[in-house]
Amino acid sequence: MPDVEKNTVDTAAIATMLQSKDAEMKRILNYCVRCGICAESCFLYMAHKGDPQYMPSYKVINSLGILYKKKGNVDKSFFEGIKGLVWRNCVLCHRCYCPIGIDIPRMIDFTRSICRSQGVYPDHDGGESWL
């Protein structure tokens, strides 16, 4: 966790974090067959009338998936961009169901941790709206 807020990111540190769970995370990212069955088990997806941005698999593929694809070579704006996806769009309730056993909240939790390591996290005393 950085001691001070910076506008840059430490790509080497991101790559190290990604590598620490490389086998597990890449495997599950590859296992996802985009079947969409997880969608209806997520109450947020249902509450947002099927907005794909709330689909469990979408949230992971478009955050952690990109981080792995780019091997951590992203900038601060990337983390700012996925912040809503991994915080507002998921409450880590562990209620989503994937028939092949992909643990979506575990991946979102890990993505949040990478965001936090680069100083990106929700600002609860600012003007951000989380729902």
Binding site: M1, D3, R112, Y121, P122, H124
Partner: peptide, 21 residues
């Protein structure tokens, strides 16, 4: 903690940084 104590502004990431400092 990223849960309640982040939201009540007592123990989230910002508060960890301030306390450590």
């Amino acid at each position: 903690c990223g849960g309640c104590t982040s939201i009540c502004l007592a123990g989230g990431q910002k508060e960890v940084m301030i306390l450590n400092r």
